[in-house]
């Protein structure tokens, strides 16, 4: 259990990369990239977790009464989620244009930019 979350993070990263490398559809590749990115969420939050800790929000607990999980990694992950969403949007926009200009979204059929 002590390394399971980290292994899951590594697994997601590799799975996403494999998905991208073997993809026959650029939209699928963007989805795989999202999987790849979810590895970073899992790693960061796992690093900040504390056994028996509660969420770092003092709306219903008294300050200092219980151990808290690390709020910093949560803030980082939040930023990361936004970054992921925006990158996905931009890449999808580019895929839409690739489909328009090349008439395909299969990376094997894109025959420009060689050599």
């Amino acid at each position: 259990m002590s390394v399971l979350p980290y292994l899951v993070a590594g697994w997601l990263f590799l799975a996403g990369c494999v998905g991208m490398a073997t993809s026959r559809n650029l939209i699928h590749a963007v989805g795989s990239l999202a999987v790849c990115q979810s590895s970073t969420y899992v790693l960061l939050l796992a690093v900040g977790y504390r056994r028996g800790g509660t969420a770092p929000v003092h709306s219903d607990i008294r300050p200092g009464s219980r151990p808290l999980v690390d709020p910093v990694v949560q803030a980082l992950t939040l930023t990361d989620v936004v970054v992921g969403a925006t990158v996905t949007a931009l890449l999808l926009a580019l895929v839409v244009q690739v489909a328009k200009r090349h008439g395909t979204v299969d990376p094997d059929e894109l025959r420009e930019l060689r050599g």
């Binding site: 650029l26 590749a29 990158v87 890449l91 580019l94 690739v98 200009r101 090349h102 894109l110 420009e112």
Partner: peptide
Amino acid sequence: ARAVQGALTFGF
């Protein structure tokens, strides 16, 4: 056609 392809690989 090339521009969008190049940008996309760059992004990935």
